[in-house]
């Protein structure tokens, strides 16, 4: 399985990847994207099985990326990993077609709760 991790912070991408490993999802191929635009392009070129994306990013935000993907016909499973987890944002994420929203800070248990059933 190929997982695309999109965050404008390299440090946060490392933390997400490390948490995936700690949560037991350690045998998957990881692709990184540094903003929403890069994530959109890499969904087209790399065909990941899951996208884990930050919300607030320069160039294209996570929600804009998800909306652009759905408009282009892509149904790639998509979840947010973001520093904001308000009810309004969860509603917007869900309405745009996101499977889940993990609020930072998170730990491996949070990842397991969100990803079990999504990652085979």
């Amino acid at each position: 399985m190929k997982i695309l991790v999109a965050d404008d912070s390299r440090v946060m991408r490392q933390i997400v990847i490390r948490t995936l490993r700690q949560a037991g999802y350690d045998d998957h191929e990881i692709v990184e994207a540094e903003d929403g635009r890069d994530a959109y392009d890499k969904v087209q070129s790399e065909h990941p099985d899951l996208v884990l994306s930050d919300w607030n990013m320069p160039n294209m935000t996570g929600i804009e990326c998800l909306q652009a993907l759905r408009s282009s016909g892509s149904g790639v499973p998509f979840g947010f990993v973001t520093s904001e987890g308000s009810a309004e944002m969860r509603d917007r994420a869900s309405a745009a077609g996101a499977l889940f929203l993990i609020a930072k800070p998170f730990n491996e248990e949070t990842f397991k709760d969100a990803l079990d059933g999504v990652i085979a």
Binding site: S9, V11, S83, E84, S86, K104
Partner: peptide, 19 residues
């Protein structure tokens, strides 16, 4: 690297303060 790391901590703390 340092700017990225402490920026991300501020981002997470800020996001939760905002909430």
């Amino acid at each position: 690297d340092v700017a990225d790391a402490i920026g991300e901590i501020a981002n997470v703390v800020g996001g939760n303060v905002k909430a």
